[in-house]
Amino acid sequence: MVRNPERRAALLDAAIDALAEEGARGLTYRAVDTRAGVPVGTASNYFTSREDLLAQTSVRTYERFMPEQEEWANVLEGPRTRAKVAEVMRATVTRMAADPNVYLATLELQLEATRRPELRADLTARVRADLDANIAFHEQSGMPGGRSTVVVLYLALNWLVTEHLTLPGVLAAEGSLEGLVDLVVDQLTLEG
Rank of each mutant, 00 (worst) to 15 (best):
A73K: 08
P144A: 01
T92W: 13
T162M: 02
A133D: 08
Q110F: 15
V85P: 07
L167P: 00
S58N: 13
E68D: 15
N101G: 05
H164R: 00
R30S: 14
V127Q: 09
A36C: 15
T106A: 14
G179S: 04
Y46F: 14
G145V: 08
E21K: 03
R116Y: 05
D99R: 12
V102F: 06
M143G: 08
A15N: 01
N45A: 12
E22T: 02
R8D: 11
L119T: 03
S44V: 01
L107A: 15
M96A: 15
T149I: 07
S148R: 13
L123M: 15
T166Y: 03
A18C: 12
R8T: 09
L155I: 00
S176M: 12
R30W: 09
Q140P: 07
V93Y: 15
N101S: 14
L53Y: 10
A172E: 09
E63T: 07
P144H: 00
G78P: 09
M1G: 14
L131Y: 06
L54P: 01
P100A: 10
A98Y: 06
P79K: 12
V151C: 10
A36K: 06
S58Y: 04
A73Q: 11
Q140I: 04
Q187W: 11
W159A: 08
Q56D: 13
G175H: 00
T28Q: 09
Q140L: 13
M96Q: 13
D17F: 01
M66E: 15
V170W: 02
V40L: 14
N45T: 09
R115D: 15
G142L: 05
D13W: 06
